[in-house]
Amino acid sequence: MAGAPLHVLAGALRDREGRVLLAERPAGKHLAGLWEFPGGKREPGEAPLAALARELDEELGVALVDAEPLIRVPWHYHERELLLDAWCVTQWRGEPRPLEGQGLQWCLPMQADPATLAPADRAILQALRLPPHYLVTPADVLPAERELWLEQIGRAIEAGERLLQLRLPRWPREEVREFAAALLPSARRHGAQLLLNADIEGAQALGVGVHLTGAQLAALAERPLPLLQVVGASCHDAVQLAQALRVGADFASLSPVAVTASHPQAAPLGWGSFQALAEAAAMPVYALGGMTPAQLAQARAAGAQGVAGIRGFWPAP
């Protein structure tokens, strides 16, 4: 029988400018030359937060003051199975120093290159990059409502929303692409990310993200976009979540958590099943299906990156 996974703590130290600290894995170690979030193994009987505090003291010479859970990443490196338990560290005492001879760098999460990180640490980076809300346009929006929804989405971006999916099945594909292009200047100015629903080619052409359908996800053998263009995936079970990880998706939406008006026949997962699936997913997962922004705290307590939704996230036109 396989033993318990190796429990590894990682700390995302975040300064007042929003930058996070990355450490370079030294020569001679596994994955040497790649960057990671500082931390290390939990000792037997040691509480997770105590292990993180000890590792940060040993590696960086800082004293942990305050941290909160960020994401737990189950991972396999060849024969080794580990649980990478990441915390967002917002307060510490002391100036981080490379006490183990490792390289150190501060960078904004959106400016870090995922290709330079150890594979398991890329999920931590995405958890830092992704916002708590994921807005999806209603499926019944008509092309005639283009100007209205340009205004709606523009207002949402101005109000602070940073992740939006354009799911417009009643529109010709070329009109959706033109619509996304019209929104891009505002999105880029505010650091918001747009995703096209199912349109990989359009996302490639525009330099935006894509949200994969379940059918697309099943047919893919590799990541459909470069690492700097976000890839989301629609998932409903563990098999789809595992496939999303295999093809290199940055996050998944997992649904339905609750009963929804749009799919009343679909059996809801409930929070217990959602949590079990999300914690085994090795990537950020949004709770979708019957969600509103008011359920964010409940979703976070169940291991979600945040909440995703359609009607409950848009004001009435």
Results as ranks from 00 to 15, higher is better:
residue 6 L to S: 11
residue 6 L to A: 08
residue 13 L to V: 04
residue 16 R to A: 15
residue 18 G to L: 08
residue 26 P to C: 12
residue 28 G to T: 07
residue 34 L to N: 05
residue 34 L to E: 08
residue 34 L to R: 09
residue 35 W to E: 03
residue 43 E to F: 07
residue 51 A to L: 06
residue 51 A to T: 03
residue 53 A to F: 04
residue 53 A to W: 00
residue 66 D to E: 15
residue 77 Y to L: 13
residue 81 E to F: 11
residue 95 E to Y: 08
residue 104 L to V: 00
residue 105 Q to Y: 07
residue 107 C to R: 14
residue 111 Q to P: 03
residue 111 Q to E: 15
residue 112 A to C: 15
residue 115 A to W: 11
residue 123 A to N: 01
residue 127 A to G: 04
residue 128 L to R: 03
residue 132 P to W: 13
residue 133 H to I: 01
residue 134 Y to I: 00
residue 137 T to S: 13
residue 140 D to Q: 14
residue 144 A to T: 14
residue 155 R to L: 13
residue 162 R to G: 07
residue 163 L to M: 13
residue 166 L to N: 02
residue 170 R to C: 12
residue 174 E to D: 15
residue 183 L to K: 04
residue 184 L to I: 11
residue 198 A to E: 15
residue 199 D to M: 04
residue 201 E to C: 06
residue 202 G to H: 09
residue 203 A to P: 00
residue 212 L to K: 07
residue 216 Q to H: 07
residue 217 L to C: 02
residue 218 A to G: 06
residue 222 E to L: 10
residue 226 P to S: 13
residue 227 L to Y: 07
residue 234 S to P: 06
residue 238 A to D: 14
residue 239 V to D: 13
residue 241 L to T: 02
residue 247 V to M: 11
residue 254 L to F: 01
residue 255 S to V: 01
residue 256 P to L: 06
residue 257 V to F: 08
residue 260 T to E: 02
residue 265 Q to H: 12
residue 267 A to S: 10
residue 272 G to C: 06
residue 274 F to I: 01
residue 277 L to H: 09
residue 291 M to G: 02
residue 297 A to V: 10
residue 309 G to F: 08
residue 311 R to N: 13
residue 311 R to S: 15
